[in-house]
């Protein structure tokens, strides 16, 4: 039994989201929700590298499939886990990030954009620096032309208001 899978299930339940890996959008949501939950303080130990749809962790995908393969066992086991007060407090930040979506994008897509900006700003060590202009350019050149410049700018604004542009953690 992988306890982390139980913890992920608890995080999803708390955020009123369905934990699944069936559709692409489910897997995208899994990657980005856990990405921000970790930066909010719930470090489950998943480490991310840049991939086509932004920061991605192979181990996390495997954990997702582990859940899907043994869903009923994990559903049963995860009922033995609950968030502590500190954990609940930390997830409030993630919930507010989901709710403050400034774009017309679906939650998973909005989180993809937000996580991509955050990753390029704080983790990627971009050669051209971490100015807003360079990051917008990098996003567009890394195949994210499906996001508009307006989407990127408004997302940048939200992340800035939440303090995530200044520092990586809440």
């Amino acid at each position: 039994m992988d306890k982390n899978v139980c913890r992920i299930k608890v995080i999803f339940e708390h955020l009123d989201k369905e934990f699944s890996v069936k559709e692409f959008s489910d897997r995208l949501l899994l990657q980005k929700l856990i990405y921000f939950s970790q930066f909010a303080g719930i470090d489950l130990g998943y480490r991310y590298s840049w991939y086509r749809f932004g920061p991605y962790s192979t181990d996390l995908t495997e954990a997702g499939y582990r859940y899907s393969d043994s869903k009923s066992s994990y559903d049963r086991e995860s009922s033995k886990f609950k968030l502590s007060a500190v954990g609940r407090d930390n997830l409030k930040k993630v919930r507010s990030l989901i709710e403050d979506n400034p774009t017309d994008l679906e939650t998973a897509d909005w989180l993809e954009l937000a996580a991509s900006i955050h990753y390029l700003k704080h983790i990627a060590h971009l050669p051209g620096g971490v100015s807003q202009d360079n990051i917008v350019e990098q996003l567009l050149s890394r195949g994210k032309e499906y996001f508009t410049k307006e989407d990127i700018d408004s997302s940048w604004g939200i992340l800035e208001r939440k303090g995530l542009i200044e520092r990586p953690n809440w």
Binding site: K3, N4, R7, L44, G45, S79, K80, F81, L83, S84
Partner: peptide, 16 residues
Amino acid sequence: VANDKKASDQFEETDP
């Protein structure tokens, strides 16, 4: 062991 201990302050186990 590290996996067992991970995020232990963020979660409570009712029946460890």
